[in-house]
C-alpha cells in the first residue's frame, strides 16, 4: 500500500513537472528523455545484442540451407535441406553426437555426485572453512587452455606424473590420451577437476540459504542423517541442482579447449564431439554450410536440455 501511494505521488510529481516543462522549450529534450528513460536505457543494449547474437545466428541458419564452402566459389546458394540430409546421414556426425552425449552424461553424473558431496563437507563448520571454500574457486577461473595443457603433460605416457603415481602404487601405467578406451575418461577426469568445485560452490550457496526449521524438526523426529539428506536436503536443493546441472550439461556440450589440446578429437574419432566436429568442418575443412547445420542442431539440442532441466527439476530464476 505504501508503495502504491508513493508511486501515485511520483506520478503526480512527474505530471506536474510535465506541465511546468511545457512552458519552456528548453526542457523538452530532458523531458522526452525522462519520459522514455527505460526504453532509452534498454535500446542500445538491445540493438547491440541483436547485432552480435541474433543476426549471426540467423546468418548461420541461412548458411545451413546453402552449400557454402569457402574452398568453392559461388557455393553460397540456396539448396534447401540438402546439406541437412548430407550432414545428418554422415556416420561421422552420428559418432560425434554419440560422443557428445556420452561426454555430457559422464561429466554431469560424476560432477553432480562429487559436487554435492563436496558441498556437504564444506557446509560443515570447521576452522578455516572460509579459506577452504574460496580455495575451491581457483580451478573454475583458471584459463581453460592452461588447464588443458597442464593435464596433457600430466597424462604424458613417459614423463607424466599420473603414470608416475600409478607406478608408485604398483598399478599398471596407461597411455591415457592415446588409448581409445581411456581417452574420453581422461577428458572427463580433467573436467571433474575443473567443474566439481563449480557444482559444489552452487550447491553450497543453496545449502547455506536453506531454512533451519525442517532440519530441527527432523532431529526432533529422530531422523537419521541419511534420511534427512534424502528426504529434506535434496528435495529442497532441487532448484539449485537444476541450475548447476543445466550449466554443466551446456558447458560440457561445447567443451572445446581440452579436446583440441589434449586429444585433438582422437584417437581415431572417439573424443570428437559435435562441437569439435563443427569447428573442424568449418574452420579446417572450410565447409561452412555443414558446420552451420551442426551448430543449428546443437542449438536445438541445447535448448532441449535447458528446457528439460528447468521443467523437470523446477529451476527458479535462471
Amino acid at each position: 500500500m505504501v508503495r502504491l501511494a508513493l508511486e501515485a505521488r511520483a506520478d503526480k510529481l512527474d505530471s506536474q513537472a510535465g506541465r511546468e516543462g511545457q512552458a519552456g522549450a528548453r526542457e523538452t529534450v530532458s523531458q522526452f528523455i525522462d519520459r522514455h528513460i527505460m526504453l532509452l536505457l534498454f535500446l542500445p543494449a538491445f540493438l547491440v545484442l541483436f547485432l552480435v547474437t541474433v543476426v549471426p545466428f540467423l546468418t548461420a541458419l541461412w548458411f545451413s540451407f546453402t552449400g557454402y564452402n569457402l574452398a568453392k566459389p559461388n557455393s553460397d546458394t540456396f539448396v534447401g535441406l540438402e546439406t541437412y540430409q548430407i550432414v545428418l546421414s554422415d556416420p561421422a556426425t552420428r559418432n560425434a553426437l554419440f560422443n557428445t552425449f556420452y561426454l555430457v552424461a559422464a561429466c554431469v553424473a560424476t560432477e553432480t555426485v562429487l559436487g554435492v558431496g563436496l558441498a556437504l563437507l564444506l557446509a560443515r563448520q570447521f576452522r578455516g572453512v572460509r579459506v577452504v571454500r574460496s580455495l575451491f574457486l581457483v580451478p573454475l577461473m583458471t584459463t581453460p587452455v592452461v588447464v588443458a595443457l597442464t593435464w596433457r603433460m600430466l597424462y604424458n605416457t613417459r614423463f607424466g606424473y599420473v603414470n608416475y603415481f600409478l607406478g608408485l602404487l604398483g598399478l599398471p601405467t596407461q597411455d591415457w590420451l592415446g588409448d581409445p578406451a581411456l581417452a574420453m575418461w581422461a577428458l572427463v577426469v580433467a573436467d571433474i577437476w575443473v567443474a566439481t568445485p563449480f557444482v559444489a560452490t552452487i550447491v553450497l550457496a543453496g545449502l547455506l540459504s536453506l531454512p533451519e526449521e525442517p532440519f530441527e524438526a527432523a532431529v526432533v523426529d529422530g531422523a537419521s542423517a541419511l534420511q534427512t539428506f534424502w528426504r529434506i536436503t535434496l528435495p529442497m536443493l532441487r532448484p539449485v541442482l537444476a541450475l548447476a546441472i543445466m550449466f554443466r550439461a551446456v558447458d560440457a556440450f561445447v567443451k572445446f579447449e581440452s579436446i583440441l589440446i589434449m586429444t585433438g578429437g582422437g584417437p581415431g574419432e572417439v573424443t570428437t564431439t559435435l562441437n569439435f566436429l563443427a569447428f573442424n568442418t568449418g574452420f579446417y575443412f572450410l565447409r561452412l554450410a555443414d558446420a552451420a547445420v551442426m551448430s543449428v542442431v546443437m542449438v536445438f539440442l541445447m535448448l532441449t536440455i535447458a528446457f528439460a532441466s528447468i521443467r523437470w527439476l523446477g529451476a527458479g530464476r535462471v
Binding site: 549471426p56 561445447v254 563443427a278 568449418g282 574452420f283 558446420a291 552451420a292 543449428v296 542449438v299
Partner: peptide, 8 residues
C-alpha cells in the same frame, strides 16, 4: 554454442 556465432 560459440561455433554458431563464429561461423557467420
Amino acid at each position: 554454442p560459440p561455433v554458431a556465432f563464429a561461423i557467420p
